[in-house]
Design a protein around this nucleic acid. Structure first.
Lengths: 149, 149
DNA sequence: ATACTTGCAAATGATTTGCCAGTGT
DNA sequence: ACACTGGCAAATCATTTGCAAGTAT
């Protein structure tokens, strides 16, 4: 067990770390996988599989969409990545370390990422009262924003 | 303005009432529309457009799926019907008077309809804190149930 | 060498759209 | 009559699956 190096290691392990996790699980570090991971590290916001396959609009070489989906699923299984359903449009993927809770307006589509913990008490109330633990990072809290209500 | 007759009028207006609303909006009481409404009145639980088109598994004559979707949209516009997205599977439709809030497990798909008001305080907290008014009757509260957590 | 992977095409599921013939009023 | 509707086929969008050819280890 090694000591984490300084830098963004804890909040968002490096690409090398991700490749290490793949290797540790008997999976290969193919160029397509490297590319998908690079895209995820490069993107500031959650991105769709389509945008990853498009090389983030040309910033990176393009790759096959079906493979991107397959690899994203693999990354999720390994705990490296998480995706969120923002109600309209495709699912969006981000590094697990960048996971966030979201609020979405069902009418205008406005998306609002929240600070970690902002919904902690809501989650706790729902869990205690109904035995269901909400994951607003996967299925956001949906409703009408002030402008649309 | 007439006085509501006794009976289930308020909680779930009759089929005749629904047809009256159509008429009052210059829309026709076609047989396809009658059928879709009959299915909605007959169904105990929210139903998919597909099931309505199938005549509720044969209980009623079948009709065209695309038309069912178009008519359900019309009914929603008139406030007669509401649909809910239960995360997996197609949208489910029910008479507006039968609208309910739902809890859904993202893993096993378990669906739990709630008593009216059960989430009133949660909705209120989210509204005050973030300006977003959740509609758990349209997009349920999603998370992990006790068995899956 | 030999699994694991990719890339491409085709299938899937839910819903929408175009269009013309049919029908309620 | 005449606009509103229905029915049917085709299109869309996001995602999945099958499979033969390619490639990391």
């Amino acid at each position: 067990m090694t000591v984490s190096p300084p830098g963004p290691a804890l909040s968002a392990p490096t690409l090398d770390h991700a490749l290490g996790v793949l290797h540790a699980n008997g999976l290969r570090a193919s160029s397509a996988r490297r590319l998908a991971l690079e895209a995820l590290y490069a993107a500031e916001e959650p991105v769709s599989a389509e945008r990853i396959a498009g090389g983030l609009d040309g910033r990176l070489p393009p790759s096959d969409l079906a493979s991107v989906y397959r690899n994203l699923e693999t990354f999720e299984r390994l705990g490296l990545v998480r995706h969120v359903h923002l109600v309209q449009g495709p699912g969006l993927y981000a590094l697990a370390a960048r996971e966030r809770d979201y609020l979405v307006c069902e009418r205008c589509g406005a998306i609002r990422p929240l600070m970690p913990g902002a919904l902690a008490d809501v989650r706790e109330v729902v869990k205690r009262r109904f035995g269901l633990t909400p994951r607003f990072s996967h299925h956001p809290l949906v409703g009408l924003c002030e402008d649309c209500a």
